[in-house]
Amino acid sequence: MSENVAAPGSIPIQTALSLLIAGALFGLGLTISGMTNPAKVIGFLDFFGNWDPSLLLVMAAGLGVSIPGFQFTTKSERPLFETRFYLPTRTDIDAKLLLGAMLFGMGWGLAGFCPGPAITSLISLDGNVFLFVLAMFAGMTIHHTAFE
């Protein structure tokens, strides 16, 4: 029997709770840090203007936890609630990686939103956030249609 990709897939309760808690901590971190405010993000990217280094600290503090967290975790054979890790395997540097990062950076600089903060900000019910997220979905759809 072929797998139905539209099916949500079954999830053990402890995994579901972990995902909800981790997602909530992630969303809370994004809002507390100010990354959900596009003006603040653009203030960070404005190296040649009135530079706001706050987001450098967000990244440094995030990596300060994630580096030891990831290095420690990937030394174990499997995660706590799953049978295996789902990690990217590619190591090659190709034009798509660089071009994609460049285009993403342009969009990030234009509006001040990257995907995580934009998703979390939807809860504010701000119409402009919905506009950005819908356009982001459209951009992903274009990529999916063209390349996958």
């Binding site: 972990s18 995902l19 901590l25 971190g29 840090s33 987001l55 967000v58 503090a61 936890v65 890790f85």
Partner: peptide, 22 residues
Amino acid sequence: SAVLGGLLIGVAASLTLWTTGR
């Protein structure tokens, strides 16, 4: 607030990998 938010993001990413492998 930047450091506090960053720490939460790091904890969230580590928790996701540690518990679900994602």
